[in-house]
Design a protein around this nucleic acid. Sequence first.
DNA 1: GCCTCCATGTAATTGGTTACATGATTCT
DNA 2: AGAATCATGTAACCAATTACATGGAGGC
Lengths: 176, 176
Amino acid sequence: MAIGTLGHALLGLLAQRECTGYELTRTFDESLAHVWPTKHSQIYPELAKLQAAGLIRQSGSGARGSKTYAATAEGLEEVRRWMRDTIPSESVRTERMLRVFFLWLLPPNEASTYLREIGGRHRERLARYEAIAAIIPSDDPEDRMGRIAIEAGIRYESAMADWASWAVEEIAKSAS
Amino acid sequence: MAIGTLGHALLGLLAQRECTGYELTRTFDESLAHVWPTKHSQIYPELAKLQAAGLIRQSGSGARGSKTYAATAEGLEEVRRWMRDTIPSESVRTERMLRVFFLWLLPPNEASTYLREIGGRHRERLARYEAIAAIIPSDDPEDRMGRIAIEAGIRYESAMADWASWAVEEIAKSAS
DNA sequence: GCCTCCATGTAATTGGTTACATGATTCT
DNA sequence: AGAATCATGTAACCAATTACATGGAGGC
């Protein structure tokens, strides 16, 4: 019963503060899902597995049958070991970028529409990330790692938005 | 027997030119795997499915029992429909970026090591992509879409390499 | 009373990875 | 003769998505 990437991500969140399965699900939806999409139907069974392995424990229970989990000492050790001693998978999976390889199948105007649309989505997310970055106090060392993570998002979205605009112009050039 | 993203990607490649399963596997390994990782053990069964659906046909056979496949008219239509009429999944999956959310678990010097290592990998790939871009003739409209795809890779790797360097400096600042 | 959000789970299916298995051809 | 590369496939397992299923609590 080996524990995978999702398990380690849950451990990482629970290392910060105790949470219910529902809260973990929302944290994924709001931030981690941008790099590691997950559904509640995967989170609940995974929590059961982590508990069975002694890496988390149920630290309380609240209204509507909610259960709060916390990382155990072994859990903390495990997530640190994962961060230090294991090599992250190189792989990135993005259908949006995959499709770029097949844009030649479309007439130039439709390819441009596709690129403009994805540029728009990147700009949207860029604005959201910048808004989040703006409210992180820049002098608090506690938040520094959070700021570093959001900066990755900002630079990624910004680079892709610029690329999309550039690509639209490239296509316009060749059409003339 | 619905056809998924991998099936459409294979159709897209076969729309360009006929290929054997082995050649498709290599094309994935060399370029498409950066955005859609796949193994030969998934490609061969998928080709059988596409053939059964009439979207590709076996167009020949060569040495060592190799089989060459080509997209049929229906296959071409299907991949164009996919590009035009379906919305790509928003999701991106990258363990490397997931781990950035948990860098606070490590002491600053180990977090810096992680960031320097991923920065190095991004610079490596950037160099490879730039080398590929350099040999694409910039005036050939046939290659323009390929150039646009590689430019996305260049900008992505470049942005992430810069981000990693910036992050290392941020950590150094807070340590002092 | 109804709607929304909170809250947890299971079942069925599809997608993806790792391991197993085999054999031909070419290069050294 | 042995190693590397070409070439195709299957089986077992694990990960992920979609659909099913249920119920409490609070607001309107």
